[in-house]
Nucleic acid binder design. Structure first.
Lengths: 219, 219
DNA sequence: GTCTATAGTTCGATAGAC
DNA sequence: GTCTATCGAACTATAGAC
């Protein structure tokens, strides 16, 4: 390893430019469809530097994921802690703590997170080794946090249906992260992809009702 | 090793073998990650035949999608028509008509549909030209059918929220199509991936409650 | 129709100048 | 640290024997 002696090498602007560019290209084409040459071109840098900085295309991909997943899950934990501190824990506020960090990232052009949203969509639907390692490493721990929160706040919800409800929330969350224009198409332009508060509010209401319905006996 | 002449596939079966094999490999690795060699090996046939039968890797991919999407949407239309004929149209039965064909396909080992489910997951989260062409060509028409059905049966649901509800249903439907084992992981084994009626029943209940909640005024 | 062989590209990765 | 040049491998697709 030709790294400096420090354990955690500082990440300069060049590395960040590669991460930003890789996020876009991986999102557009998936892991295999993306090429290091395309990433370097978008980063306006030399392709050989990818291997110098990250070691391999695979390692670059994992760095892209780690950067966003870490920030998202840190914000989720902060929000959950704040809810407990304020005594404001409800199913709705828990769901908002789950969804807002991802959806807000996906709608903020200045942060380029819409690309990560699509990348995550690829990974969430993948069953290959890379995708499973990714979701396991970055999202299983936070999943258990939210499952515990939901179970504690919804009376009569079985452990199985708690997991079901959480996974439904995540499925909708991912589908809402990345604006695809499909909602605009299907509503003939009436539904806009960019009203953040409306999107989060309606998603929370939808999911809260769905989860509470699971807790009720059939009838 | 060459098979005996009497076991060699008849005319048409060779193409089906390629479609089956391609479905598996495309699902596992995505379009770019899949190779014609891997598809041919799984089909126990020669890779050059892919071009003889289908013209290109791209055309093979589209043939894989067309085969399943056509069958799924035909079944959906049949189910909707049957509901109207029986006078059994409710939000729940509409949602079941939407979800059952895909989820059942994904859980039926004899039909190999779990692979198509993963393939569709890739396409649904993709914004590349190929993915958009695919969803537009095969799923926009059926989407409008279901949006109209939902709007007609749920009082007070705005056109925008009807589209929202439909897209939420599709997002959850796709996430339920392919067993990923994640629900089993997160529930420590309590939630099983293979109980078809339980999965459909709980999904329908969840979605019906969510959609009806969108129709109610905030409060 | 089915095969072998290979053309023509393009890929990830690396060596080495500076 | 950053570049050019290039390697070896893998890819899709095709030509042509049979």
């Amino acid at each position: 390893m030709a790294r400096p002696a420090e354990q955690r090498p500082e990440r300069g602007e060049a590395q960040e430019a590669f991460l930003d560019a890789a996020e876009v290209v991986f999102a557009e084409s998936g892991f295999h469809g993306a090429t290091t040459r395309a990433i370097a071109e978008r980063a306006q840098a030399n392709a050989a530097l990818i291997h110098y900085y990250f070691g391999s295309k695979e390692a670059l991909y994992e760095a892209v994921v780690a950067r966003r997943a870490g920030a998202i899950n840190d914000e989720r934990r902060t929000r959950i802690a704040a809810l407990h501190a304020r005594g404001a824990v409800t199913l709705e506020t828990i769901l908002e703590a789950l969804l807002r960090p991802t959806i807000a990232l996906g709608r903020d052009p200045s942060r380029g997170g819409a690309h990560y949203a699509r990348l995550l969509g690829h990974a969430a639907s993948g069953t290959d080794e890379r995708s499973r390692r990714l979701t396991g490493a970055h999202y299983n721990a936070i999943a258990r946090v939210f499952i515990a929160e939901i179970a504690a706040i919804v009376p009569g919800l079985s452990p199985e249906d708690t997991v079901r409800g959480y996974l439904n929330a995540v499925a909708i969350g991912i589908s809402l992260m990345a604006p695809t224009g499909r909602s605009q198409d299907l509503s003939d332009g009436a539904l806009r992809d960019d009203d953040l508060e409306e999107i989060i509010g309606q998603a929370v209401r939808f999911l809260a009702a769905g989860i509470r319905a699971l807790a009720k006996p059939p009838g």
